[in-house]
Amino acid sequence: MTDKTTLSPVLVLGATSDIGMAVAHRCAESGADLILAARASERLEGDAQDLRLRHRIAVDVVEFDILADVPGAWIDRLPRLPEAVVCVVGLLGDQAASTRDGAAAERVMTTNYVAPALLLGEFANRMEARGSGVIVGVSSVAGDRGRASNYVYGGAKAGFTAFLSGLRARLSRTPVRVVTLKPGFVATKMTAGMTLPPLLTAQPREVAEATWKALQGGRDVIYVRPVWRLIMSIIAMVPEPIFKKMRF
C-alpha cells in the first residue's frame, strides 16, 4: 500500500455502478475515506463493509437520486464537503425509445447532463469558496460527435463535456481542478450483452486507475484507452455530408 492520501474523503456519485465501485476500491487502496452515493443505497452496505475491512478506511453511504435531489440541500446533508467528487452517473437508455418517447429522451438528457451539471456546479462553487477540491466528471466519447444510433445519449454527454470544459476554464485560476474522463467502451452491467471490440474495451479497473491518476493531477481531458483519442479525432474530421451517411 502506498502512503495514505490527503485527497480524502472522495465522494463517488453513482457508486453502485461497476465503474463507481471500481473507483471506490482504487481510492480506498490508497487510503482515501469514502462517501458512496447512489439510489437504493442499502445495496451499498455490503460493499461499504468490504471496503472498511479491506482498507481500514471510513466509509459513509448516502442516499442519492440524481433526478430527485436538489443539489444544494443534498450537499448540505453530506457528512462533510468532500475533497474530491467523482461523478459516474449515467444512463444509456434505449435509443429507439428515446426517439419515440419524449419522456424517455428527457430522462436520458437529465441523467447525463442537466442534473450532474447542476450538482457539480454547486460542488465547484463550494470547493472554490473553500479553496481546494477536485471534480472528475465521467463523460463519454459518444459526446464527441452525434451518431444516428445514439444521439440522445451522445447529445447529453456532449453538453456535459462542454459544461465541464467551461467549468474547468472558469476555475483555472483557483486551486480547484476539473477533469473530464472519457472511458470509451467499458465492460460493465450497462454494456453486458453487447459485442465490444476487445482492444477498444476497458475494464472498470482501468477506468478506476485512470480516475485515480486524474485525481492526482495532470491532464484535463482523459481518454482511458489512448487509442480513443485518435479514433475520435479522425471521426471529428469526417465532413458532415459523409458523416451523416455513415451507419455505426
Binding site: G46, D47, Q49, D50, L53, R54
Partner: peptide, 10 residues
C-alpha cells in the same frame, strides 16, 4: 462466483 467477493466481518 467471482463477483461475490466481499469481506463481511473480521
Amino acid at each position: 462466483m467471482r463477483r461475490l467477493s466481499r469481506l463481511i466481518a473480521f
